[in-house]
């Protein structure tokens, strides 16, 4: 974040030796490497599938599918990235999203069966807010366990993941619930200039988190916390407040993802997106997030999301199975890490 500020400083001191300018330039590429790498990978994947199956892949249906499937995964991946930036992880974020969706769906169904469908539909906005409140509350529970009680994030959120998921199973009886405010379904089918509205939700979330990390002191504190928790403490930054805020915000993002679930499909269940948790970890890391904390970009994560969506729909276009897609995810992740290692070996020291 500050690099961008400081770059201006570097330029202003124009008298710096050429070699310094050069090493600085190399360093900048290094910093933005993951973003560049993901952009290149995205273009490459797009090109490959376009060549292999131009008719299917470039069809507007296929592009719509990508733009509709990407937002929920993208928002969850951004949430995962924020926790990783702080040096933690949130395994419960998908359960939080489901909790939000289930709460909205159940309340909607309850209202519409007692007071009529019209009233229930007119309550779309309050219902969405209710879902977001559920997300915030669940995130705050994670935050309390991690920041106040001091449980390691991976264990705390593993626990709450099981807890939230169990509660959801009990409440829904393990069934898939049908029913969501009509407004949400409308949202899911609306497009602006061909771009689905829910894709714009992803864009808004990405910009908001970008502003948080770049322009708000909390964002700086989250990053300091992840870069070196000890130095952060010795700089007078309260890890309790920082982590509480981090996980609460991530809970909110989970709640938003739940709303997107319902917009795409007016149904909710406890086991929706069962494979998402690991997928969004993969995306966050592919997008350049340092799993040890302190380093991440929103742009990188968004590009990684799109990249994997392109691969997914490309595999569908090629009639390959979801198992083969899962393997491709693994290959891409390991490939990116190996590339990182090779490049790091060449340039470090």
């Amino acid at each position: 974040m500050m690099n961008r500020i400081a770059e201006a400083d570097g330029m202003r001191r124009g008298g710096a030796e050429r070699r310094d300018v050069l090493t600085d330039f190399v360093r900048k590429i290094h910093v933005n490497r993951s973003v560049g790498q993901m952009a290149a990978l995205l273009v490459a994947a797009f090109a490959i599938f376009t060549i292999l199956r131009p008719a299917v892949f470039l069809g507007s249906y296929n592009l719509q599918v990508i733009a509709l499937a990407a937002p929920e995964i993208g928002i969850l991946a951004i949430a995962m990235m924020v926790t990783m930036l702080s040096g933690g992880i949130d395994l419960s974020v998908v359960s939080i999203a489901n909790a939000s969706a289930i709460t909205i769906s159940m309340t909607y169904t309850a209202v519409s069966s007692r007071a009529g469908v019209e009233l229930a539909n007119s309550l779309a906005l309050p219902l969405v807010l209710l879902g977001l409140v559920v997300g915030v509350a669940a995130g705050a529970i994670n935050g309390l366990l991690i920041a106040k009680v001091g449980i390691t994030p991976i264990l705390a959120t593993l626990g709450t993941m099981q807890l939230f998921n169990g509660l959801e199973l009990v409440v829904t009886g393990g069934r898939t619930l049908y029913g969501a405010p009509a407004g949400l379904s409308t949202l899911g089918t609306t497009t602006f200039l061909g771009v689905p509205a829910i894709f714009l939700i992803l864009v808004v979330v990405a910009v908001a988190i970008g502003v948080l990390l770049d322009r708000i002191s909390l964002g700086f504190r989250i990053r300091y916390q992840g870069a070196n928790a000890e130095a952060s403490r010795f700089s007078g930054i309260s890890s309790t407040r920082t982590l509480l805020a981090t996980y609460t915000i991530v809970g909110l993002l989970g709640g938003i993802a739940g709303v997107v679930f319902l917009s795409r499909n007016p149904s909710a269940s406890a086991d929706y997106g069962a494979s998402y948790t690991l997928l969004v970890i993969v995306i966050a890391v592919l997008g350049g997030t340092n799993p040890y904390g302190g380093r991440a970009t929103v742009l990188g994560v968004v590009l990684a999301t799109l990249c994997l969506q392109v691969v997914a729909s490309g595999f569908t276009a090629m009639r390959l199975s979801s198992q083969q897609y899962a393997m491709a995810q693994g290959v891409i992740l390991i490939g990116a890490m190996v590339l990182d290692y090779l490049r790091g070996r060449g340039s470090s020291r």
Partner: peptide
């Protein structure tokens, strides 16, 4: 090294670490 600095972060980031809030 462990308590005073964020080694992989820029000089600017390190210098502002204890005072970011003041610039809001």
């Amino acid at each position: 090294l462990t308590q005073g600095l964020f080694l992989d972060d820029s000089i600017a980031d390190n210098v502002v670490a204890a005072s970011v809030t003041a610039f809001a």
